[in-house]
Design a protein around this nucleic acid. Structure first.
Length: 293
DNA sequence: TTGAGAATAT
DNA sequence: TATATTCTCA
């Protein structure tokens, strides 16, 4: 879903307006199917009855002019947007063209946003400065795919080595910042801590590895100890695999059983806990309840 | 100086 | 509640 949008936007960037129009017009009703704009929609009697001030009838010139205005404003909007994006890329000096979002290094961005006296910032055009101050970076949404990737990398590294920078590098997702990962990792740790506190003290590592209630402890043990097929401490997960997070309709995600988890660490034999399968269950997964029942 | 992690803000 | 930002400390 998201990928589709990105693809279209990319096409939009590279193909120019003419192709855009093809894109925009695809699937739209033909001119014959539409009521001509030159036609007055409300009969004068009706307009009079409802005290609607009659609109002056439109000529083809009016219609064309309106159409051109619309295109012009769209193009203006588009070029401003592109300028803004280019500006961010320049400032961050990072290749984030394959973004999940238009992210950037928060520290560098902050410096400019706070109206710093940096020479480069001063040299910017008023338009760029204004745009840059007002445009707020969209927040990253941790899609199930992205989170799955995160979980895979954390599991791969083991909790000891799972630090934001390393996770970010192994996830290999364009535009993902260390801050994004750190924030998510923080949430993840809180989640795992909560799970641990709910966990029965007598739980053995084996239990942790095989049961549906696999806990973060199994991740702590990391890939080395818990993976039956794992002889070298690796989980067979391709590292540094270029990853394009994709939005997936939730019903599809819900229908995803273990078989649907390509690349899920083998340590999750029997399937990762519900909270890992459907990650945005950080707040909904209750391991104790699942054990009891 | 940098990065991790916690605390706090949005 | 999710994510971003800021702060502290190693």
């Amino acid at each position: 879903m998201g990928e589709e949008v990105v693809t279209k936007l990319t096409d939009y960037d590279s193909n120019g307006v003419n192709d855009d129009r093809l894109l925009w017009e695809a699937g739209l009703p033909s001119a014959d199917d539409l009521t001509p704009l030159t036609l007055q929609l409300i009969p004068s009697e009706l307009a009079h009855a409802f005290r609607i001030s009659p609109e002056s009838s439109k000529t083809m010139n009016d219609v064309n002019r309106a159409s051109q205005n619309t295109f012009a404003s769209l193009q203006r909007w588009h070029s401003q947007d592109m300028a803004s994006m280019n500006r961010e890329e320049t400032v961050t000096e990072r290749d984030e063209t394959d973004l999940v979002r238009q992210g950037s290094d928060p520290k560098k961005l902050r410096r400019v946003e706070s109206g710093g006296t940096d020479e480069a910032a001063d040299a910017d055009s008023a338009l760029c400065s204004e745009k840059f101050e007002t445009v707020k970076r969209p927040r990253l949404v941790w899609t199930p795919q992205l989170h799955k990737r995160f979980i895979e990398v954390v599991a791969h590294l083991g909790i000891k080595n799972a630090v934001p920078k390393t996770i970010m590098q192994l996830m290999n997702v364009g535009g993902l910042t260390r801050e994004n990962v750190a924030s998510h990792l923080q949430k993840y740790r809180l989640f795992t801590k909560r799970m641990q506190s709910n966990e029965e003290p007598s739980s053995s590592p084996d239990h942790l590895c095989t049961s549906r209630g696999a806990t973060p402890q199994s991740l702590r043990e990391s890939s080395e100890s818990c993976h039956p097929h794992n002889t070298n401490g690796h989980m067979g997960m391709p590292t540094m695999m270029p990853y394009q997070p994709q939005m997936m309709p939730m019903p599809m995600m819900m229908g995803m059983t273990n078989g649907g988890h390509v690349g899920m660490p083998v340590g999750y034999a029997g399937g990762p806990p519900a909270g890992f399968h459907h990650p945005y269950n950080f707040g909904y997964y209750h391991p104790v309840a699942s054990h009891d029942n």
